[in-house]
């Protein structure tokens, strides 16, 4: 066999076998991977939409909804909003908001608000690139305690350095500001988009909310 033909045959056979092998593994794992992704989303929603009552950032509560919020979403201003329901009534919303101007790029935060009065029921940072040990303090419940349990009008939602009521993380004011930016965005949606939150039909499966 001439060398050129041999090269082609070997490459074709090797890549073909590689493709077959990958297809076989993908077949076995794709369902599990999708399930894992869904579980992760549901778990995050669970932490930000606890049972009604005054929540505490440092404690875990059973979830405050009995539907599947990951399948009951609306897209507002490019942000995905998960709706938690009891029966048919929307009890809480979890807004996937972007905190702009973080120390490193942006951060993605899931902000849980009670539907009746807009009280912040939980914060879960989904994605960030903040400095370990400084900016990552924002994920600690001791810091989030200053926000969880307060309504949008209950306090001044800016950091103390800017004259607000939230003590910024020492050494990570920029991170604290960015987190508050995400929280405020969620509160704005709750204030101004009430009708859509309550009655807009859920996004179809596979539909993407742009701007994320």
């Amino acid at each position: 066999m001439p060398e050129t033909v041999k090269m082609i045959v070997v490459m074709v056979v090797v890549t073909g076998l590689a493709g077959l092998g990958l297809a076989a593994v993908n077949d076995r794992t794709s369902d599990l991977i999708a399930q894992n992704a869904r579980q992760t989303t549901l778990k995050s929603i669970n932490t930000v939409l606890p049972e009604t009552g005054k929540p505490d950032a440092c404690k875990t509560f059973p979830s405050g909804f009995d539907n599947a919020p990951d399948q009951d979403t609306v897209c507002i201003d490019g942000m995905t909003v998960f709706r938690g329901r009891r029966g048919s009534e929307v009890t809480g919303i979890a807004v996937q908001a972007i905190g702009e101007k973080a120390y490193a790029g942006t951060m993605t935060v899931l902000v849980g608000l009670r539907m009746s009065d807009g009280m912040l029921t939980g914060i879960k940072v989904l994605k960030h690139a903040e400095t370990p040990g400084l900016g990552t303090g924002m994920t600690k419940c001791e810091f989030q305690r200053q926000m969880v349990g307060f309504t949008p009008d209950g306090q001044n939602w800016t950091v103390a350095k800017d004259g607000g009521d939230i003590d910024q993380l020492s050494g990570a004011t920029i991170t604290s500001r960015s987190l508050l930016n995400a929280v405020t965005k969620a509160q704005t949606i709750w204030k101004s988009e009430r009708d859509r939150l309550l009655s807009a039909p859920a996004m179809k499966e596979g539909e993407v909310c742009h701007g994320q």
Partner: peptide, 21 residues
């Protein structure tokens, strides 16, 4: 090229297995 294809295949398999399990 053959080495790279072989290696890339195993890496993708590991990636999928880790994500699943």
């Amino acid at each position: 090229p053959v080495y790279v294809v072989v290696i890339a295949t195993f890496v993708t398999i590991v990636d999928m297995l880790l994500k699943a399990y």
